[in-house]
């Protein structure tokens, strides 16, 4: 769905483990374990600081990853947010 802003699941509910090439996270609220690569982890990390819009996330990550913040990049970030929402790791909020 299209959200004005997103927030991450409560930090206390997420048990992170860093592996050489990926991350796993156990979500206490759902009892599910997820395997994530770097980009979704970066998105969750940003959202744990404070809620942000898709546009803000795309812009901040583009600068951090040194990529162009164009349409395809924005769509990629939006797709990941949708996937994270389906996993109950982020949820839309109204600011």
């Amino acid at each position: 769905m299209s959200a004005s802003s997103w927030q991450a699941a409560a930090a206390d509910d997420l048990l992170w483990e860093a592996w050489e090439e990926a991350f796993t996270v156990y979500h206490r609220a759902t009892g599910e374990t997820h395997l994530l690569n770097v980009l979704p982890v970066e998105i969750l990390s940003l959202l744990q600081e404070r809620p942000r819009s898709t546009e803000e996330i795309a812009a901040e990550l583009a600068a951090r990853c040194e990529v162009v913040n164009d349409g395809p990049w924005h769509r990629r970030v939006a797709d990941i947010l949708e996937e994270l929402e389906a996993l109950s790791l982020v949820e839309p909020v109204d600011r």
């Binding site: 592996w19 050489e20 090439e21 990926a22 991350f23 796993t24 009892g31 374990t33 395997l35």
Partner: peptide
Amino acid sequence: VPGSQAFVRLSNNAFNYH
């Protein structure tokens, strides 16, 4: 096998993981 892959395979393989 990378650790994350081994973890995922083992967790799927456990009788009582969930």
